[in-house]
Design a protein around this nucleic acid. Structure first.
Lengths: 341, 341
DNA sequence: TTGTAGGCGTTATCAA
DNA sequence: TTGATAACGCCTACAA
């Protein structure tokens, strides 16, 4: 049925191995034979079987994308499509295919990724997150599978190639921006603190307060899911405080959107009553009412560099560990106002 | 190095084929042997090699996702992550893995998809678009590869399983909504008319005008890219008309967002000066200023059903052709106002 | 119920 | 420069 290397070989009067060499464009085959073989391939409509090739060559030319939760859930946050855009660009440039993780719960994702790798479906993976004591990362390290993480690894960062922002500085910048505008009661809203990105930004926030000699108030630090609902919940918590904050550093645009919604329902105005600086600078930040001042973290670049590094690593296992920091910058919009006292 | 079926066989004192049968949970193997074999697998840390399995069984257990343009470009529109969410859910349920198309231009995408299929990396594909005279669709049909399209196939719709909305009706509903509010000068803004979704919605729009005995004015029909920039461009065109429209039916939220932006720059207000009904009801519709009245087309469902149908088809090639229509509904928000005369 | 052996379509190692 | 031939790891008749 399907035409194989053998059919081509017969047609061109050469051995299968010769055809294989022609496909690989081996320099040790005469131009004349190459010509003849290529013609035979055309005539027969030959297409290489990647599966067979992968089995023989022990390489799939596929990279796996691992999200922190089910694709269903993660893809609700525009951060993920955006990183994937970057990954996809780099993968395409190097002719790698892209496969996405599946699985609902963390344990299931873990198993599927192990399957992907052990099953040789992918040559390596990119983790689109970094969490504390990540079982998967330990596994990858232990078994020597090529991988790259987007974010800062919790442990053994010196053994793990990763692409990250300077999130401590970014968090500091965000808080300092509000402080410079006269805010003194500033809250921090992040995702689950097991995610390093939350911790770093929060530390930056704390450092900014300290530099400004403002008190760090634990009740002003809230952690919820990186989704709109998370933002709503966080806002409610903060508003229930006897002395609610006037400024908010929010680690994610989508969360900030939820907060905006809750504020709107309650009748509080942004930026008149509450100022917000958020993170990611996705389209949402631009589009919301009011548009959000947001820290651009170069999401596309994050993905692009991660994929490039992974592919390098796959092709050269002794490639030294790298750490790439993508610059961030605060984009001013309409969600912050000055404040006296 | 890696543990194979043979190692397990030795350890369990059985033949490799027996191990293979245990993996497949064949009923013709005694529970006792299964037990023993499974234990051996555990002890050795055996993981099946999917690649080898695929080669032998001629099935990859992977489905391919084909976007209309580069992933880089397409993923800018929230429509795509949303369909992928649905696809991913169904794929996960049936234990299929997901692979994404790569390629920049249409011709390159075509080639990569052919490679994917001929190279047996995927068992079938889902086209996330439908365009006129699609070379790829012809190819798939000709070679009998399993595929499903999201949208209405241009040709041979009776031979192609597809998941779609009733876009004619949806377009009609959108226009009728504006007509009912007293608008008489209503424009239609769609994507490239080679995409069937544009054509259908536009036809529905025209039908609504006709029913209301309003004139169809060609200058009120504009086609641009399904991106923000497309919307901006379209808006500029419409505003340059001697008699600009007061109502807009826009085939995509992201485009509508671009239009909102241009209107805002010019100082026209929505909905006071211009009313907008858009499509997709993505998060953007909810978040924009003002929030957009938008037709919800059940994007997640679209993806979910498509993946389910594809998998059925893969597992049963004689599965009859199906056509699934996902219901739509207009979600009222703040972008439309009544108008007298 | 289990084992033997050939094949899936390539690549890669030796020879020639 | 090219050809045989043995992997790659698994599946599946066919035998036993």
């Amino acid at each position: 049925m399907t035409v194989t290397i053998k059919d081509v070989a017969k047609r061109a009067n050469v051995a299968p191995s010769t055809v294989s060499r022609v496909i690989a464009d081996s320099p040790r085959i005469s131009e004349k034979t190459k010509q003849r073989v290529r013609e035979a391939m055309k005539e027969l409509g030959y297409h290489p079987n990647f599966i067979a090739r992968s089995l023989a060559s022990q390489a799939a030319q596929v990279i796996g994308i691992v999200m922190p939760s089910s694709a269903d859930q993660a893809l609700q946050n525009p951060f993920f499509p955006a990183v994937i855009r970057g990954i996809s660009k780099a993968a395409h440039e190097k002719r790698y295919a892209l496969q996405m993780s599946t699985g609902e719960k963390e344990s299931e994702i873990y198993e599927r990724v192990v399957e992907m790798l052990q099953g040789r479906r992918v040559d390596g993976v990119i983790l689109l997150y970094s969490r504390q004591n990540d079982k998967l990362m330990k596994y990858l390290l232990k078994h020597g599978f090529p991988f790259v993480v987007i974010g800062k690894p919790h442990q053994k960062a010196e053994q793990v190639t990763h692409v990250d922002n300077d999130n401590v500085q970014a968090g500091k910048d965000a808080a300092a921006y509000l402080i410079a505008r006269g805010h003194e009661r500033i809250a921090f809203v992040g995702g689950n603190p097991q995610y390093l990105v939350t911790v770093d930004r929060q530390n930056g926030y704390a450092a900014a307060l300290q530099e400004a000699e403002l008190p760090y108030r634990p009740e002003y630090v809230v952690h919820e899911e990186f989704l709109q609902e998370g933002g709503q919940e966080a806002m409610r918590e903060l508003l229930s405080l006897p002395e609610p904050p006037t400024g908010l550093v929010v680690a994610d645009d989508l969360m900030a959107l939820g907060m905006l919604k809750t504020l709107d329902e309650i009748g509080l105005r942004v930026p008149e009553d509450v100022s917000i600086v958020s993170f990611n600078n996705t389209l949402l930040a631009e589009m919301s009412r009011p548009p959000l001042t947001s820290v651009d973290i170069g999401i596309f670049q994050l993905g692009y560099e991660a994929a490039k590094s992974l592919i390098e690593k796959i092709n050269n296992p002794s490639e030294p560990v790298k750490r790439i920091i993508i610059p961030h910058r605060l984009v001013e919009r309409g969600s912050c106002a000055g404040r006296t006292g």
